[in-house]
Design a protein around this nucleic acid. Sequence first.
RNA 1: GACCCCUUCGUCUAGUGGUCUAGGACUCCAGGUUUUCAUCCUGGCAACACGGGUUCGAACCCCGUAGGGGUCGCCA
Length: 435
Amino acid sequence: MKVRTRFAPSPTGNVHIGNMRAAIYNWLFARHHGGDFLLRVEDTDRERSTPQAIKTLLEAMDWLKLDVDGEPLYQSTRMEAHLAAAELLLSKGMAYKEDKGGTGQGECVIFRMPGNDTSFADGIKGTLSKAAENMQDFVIVRSNGTPVFHLANVLDDIEQGVTHVIRGDDHIENTYRHIALYQALGADVPNFAHLPMIVNAQGKPYSKRDGDAFVGDFREKGFLGDALFNYLALLGWSPGDDREIMTRDEMIEAFDLARCQSSAAQVDMKKLTWMNGEYMLKLTTEEFEVAAFWELEKAGVDAESEYAKRVFGLIRERVKTVADIAPMIGYFFNDDFEYDEKAVRKKLQKDGVADTLNKVKEIFQTLETFDEASTDRALHEFVEESGLGFGAVMAPVRIAVSGVQSGPDLFPVLAVLGRERVLERMIRTVEQFLT
RNA sequence: GACCCCUUCGUCUAGUGGUCUAGGACUCCAGGUUUUCAUCCUGGCAACACGGGUUCGAACCCCGUAGGGGUCGCCA
């Protein structure tokens, strides 16, 4: 039978990375087996399920390149079928109505647990079981007449022909109920696999306060979709060898539920950042330029020029995230850049620095050409003649033209900025800090 | 409280009875290359939760304890 998995989020405007990882595993599993990966939008909460929220969800999936087979099923269109099934269960005596009283809410429909012990083979955790006496009847239709999650979820999985339900392990308890529902409805029980949760840096479940846990946040922080996908895929799963940076095809080929971890995993931003850096390196020059362009647009800089492309080339291999780009090269586009206080205090405001900068300025003025090779040669000569350390010359010059003490190779930076700008900045720096 | 799940370096993990004085990656630290910055290279620190069994032999099997997490009739 063809494998069919699904991702069934409720669109609330944010997609938690725990959910998104579940989506990734469903996708990987389906692709590995040549099956279908389906989407079901559980939009029964009309308040929160706005068109905007659904759009956000689809964008997140698109960003991670999780392509869906077939049309998405919107749960809100299935209410009649859900209620009809409830009626059927009622008529067979498998469910009953009850007025919970007190609140005067009216009668709800309650599913009657069949009273037998249940166990199932979880694809990740192995055999799980629960005794009948520990399972209670549960509500499937609210007193206001709307179907509850358990009913809707199971019916829609049946409708979509889902063969493998891969979801968070907070659903384990629900699974016993769902199995009873499948059986009561005369449907085949699918295979289940329960993923451990993703926790915050304190090892606790993510809460609203933690931030950091929504897919959109990672995008805003400058991470690449492919990198986040790779990172999340490896958070709770490993191919069994030492591979970490893997292509989609490699991950699809190696993916196996049995190799998934059954304990919770913590997100490590440092490792994600490292991995993202590796992916930044893999970007083509064009892809990098596009990313850099948008970052600068966001910062209000017009970066559509040959000059900008030269600047991008300087930092091409030294950014870890796309968010690193703008702050690293702001001084190329803005003459009123800020000076880093610490850099000024430690490297600039020292005896002799004014002298050094003035001399270097004079040297630069007299150079026949002002390019990478000539400035390089000239500064080396100056270092030798003056007897100053290389760092004692380079650092002040760098801070004078960029405001910071670290950055791309200095000589190319000088060349791209051009003689005029370099001289202006050196003069201004001396006036501002050294007089 | 009841029921269920989980437990290898700080973190992600490899490991399915002997090859484990426990391997890799990220982080961190120390050297080195680069007469700037970053990269890069080499090395180092660092773990089988605890206690009992079973076995010639246990990180791997069993039991217990502790700790963490989840669920507990109208959220999904």
